[in-house]
Simulated scan of single mutants.
Amino acid sequence: MSTKQPAKHHDPIDVKAIREGARNLDNGAVPSGYQGNREEIIEMLNAALATELVCVMRYKRHYYTATGIFNEPIKAEFLEHAQQEADHADLIAERIVQLNGEPDFNPSTLTDRSHAEYDDSSDIKSMIKANLIAERVAIESYRQMIERIGDTDPTTKHMLIGIMAVEEEHADDMKDLLEGNG
């Protein structure tokens, strides 16, 4: 005895309405069906941008100021992370523009808007610890942003998930380095 489910009926896609909505060019690259709270998402993304920029500067400072032949592999890790954080900042700035916003690169308010803190430690263990803490801050910030955005903006959500995955790798790298420098 077969219990065949009736086929679900879906409304056809309203191509005419899609085309008409796409003609409204006031909202930038995102069409009229966009469901996210554009202003709130741009504000969150600008905070994430500030966080990434502060992380670039922190990792760069640590790269240039870490000394000693035994710290060369750690310095290389700091430099790689700085470059990846810069890539994240670029992705975020591009998304802000796609949402018809303006990325905020204002250096005078950068540290106030950043979730992570800058660090000017001079010893390698303190540098690693500061970077691990900053990565953990970034991960939790991204998790909360992803939760808040939900399914209203899939593009931003997926971008943030990808960035968060790299931040988790960075945190794992710093944890491993910290344990190796205990």
Rank of each mutant, 00 (worst) to 15 (best):
T156C: 00
N46H: 01
S121T: 08
E140Q: 14
S141W: 09
K157S: 10
E43C: 02
A76I: 09
D153N: 01
M174H: 05
Y63A: 10
M145N: 06
C55E: 13
I96L: 03
G182T: 11
D172S: 12
K157V: 01
A134K: 05
E40N: 07
L91F: 11
A66K: 03
A171D: 03
A47Q: 15
E40G: 03
N100T: 10
Y142L: 05
H88G: 12
G36M: 04
I124M: 12
E94S: 06
I149K: 00
D119H: 12
F70R: 14
I161C: 07
I41R: 02
Y63W: 14
E77W: 08
E77I: 14
R58Q: 11
T111A: 11
K125G: 09
K129D: 03
E72F: 11
H62Y: 06
R143D: 04
V137E: 01
T65E: 13
N71M: 07
D123W: 05
G101K: 06
I69C: 10
D172Y: 09
L110T: 04
A171L: 05
R61A: 08
N106S: 13
A138Y: 00
D153W: 02
F70Y: 08
L53I: 07
T67K: 12
H170F: 04
E179T: 15
I96E: 01
H115C: 06
E40R: 05
T65S: 13
L177W: 04
A130H: 02
I139H: 02
S108P: 00
A86V: 04
G36C: 08
I96C: 00
M164C: 13
E72M: 11
L53E: 03
E39R: 04
I69F: 14
A93S: 12
K125Y: 06
R95F: 02
V166W: 05
D87A: 15
I96G: 00
V54S: 01
D119A: 13
T109M: 09
R148L: 02
A89W: 09
M127S: 05
K157Q: 09
G182W: 11
R95N: 03
D151T: 15
T51A: 01
N106K: 09
L110W: 07
G101D: 03
E39A: 04
I124F: 08
L79F: 12
P73W: 04
A86L: 14
D90M: 12
S108N: 13
E72A: 12
F78Y: 10
E80T: 14
R143N: 08
P103N: 10
A130W: 03
I149E: 01
N181Y: 11
V54A: 01
Q144T: 06
V54M: 04
A138L: 01
K175A: 11
I146K: 03
D176F: 10
T51N: 05
E39K: 07
T65Y: 10
A116Y: 09
N46M: 01
E80A: 15
